[in-house]
């Protein structure tokens, strides 16, 4: 289960609500407030594996200290709340704490929702699958 994948793709309101509830039980210090920056996206030509820079992606980054444990939150887009929450998760999942079962449950539920939504989209896309016949064929 890739935690970052889930936190980047899940519902923002669900994530914000979960973190708001949980952070009351921890000592949270903002080491770096969420701010926008850029990530240079590297790509690779699929034929010759020539690496090149495709362009940049707007990114938000944030750093928190949760019970003195540092957490980094990075995500594509202007997403200060999400970056904060990712940083919070990054820190708390590295600390022994009583909330780990709840955290895992939250991640599981969000992953299921993401997968369902992607599967639905994928199945809509599959409806456009085509098998063109050559004129002489039946």
């Amino acid at each position: 289960m890739n935690q970052d994948y889930i936190l980047c793709e899940c519902s923002l309101s669900a994530l914000e609500n979960f973190v708001t509830e949980l952070e009351k039980y921890f000592n949270v210090v903002v080491a770096k407030t969420p701010s926008i920056c850029m990530t240079m996206v590297k790509a690779e030509d699929s034929v010759e594996s020539q690496t090149f820079y495709l362009g940049e992606a707007l990114t938000t980054e944030c750093q928190l200290l949760v019970n003195d444990k540092i957490g980094y939150g990075i995500c594509i887009g202007d997403e200060p709340v999400r970056a904060y929450c990712i940083a919070f998760f990054d820190a708390i999942t590295d600390i022994e704490n009583e909330f780990l079962p709840q955290i895992n449950q939250f991640l599981k539920e969000q992953l299921a929702a993401i997968e369902l939504s992607q599967k639905i989209e994928h199945n809509h896309i599959l409806r456009t699958k085509v098998d063109f016949k050559i004129m002489e064929q039946d």
């Binding site: 920056c37 850029m38 690496t51 495709l54 050559i134």
Partner: peptide
């Protein structure tokens, strides 16, 4: 606008073989 922003990260090479495909066609092979 991009000139006002700091470039803080370089990504690993993206892999188009991992693409969540929304469209995929070939005019060479049926």
């Amino acid at each position: 606008f991009r000139t006002t922003l700091q470039r803080r990260y370089y990504s690993e090479s993206i892999n188009t073989r991992e693409m969540f495909v929304k469209r995929k066609i070939s005019a060479s092979f049926r």
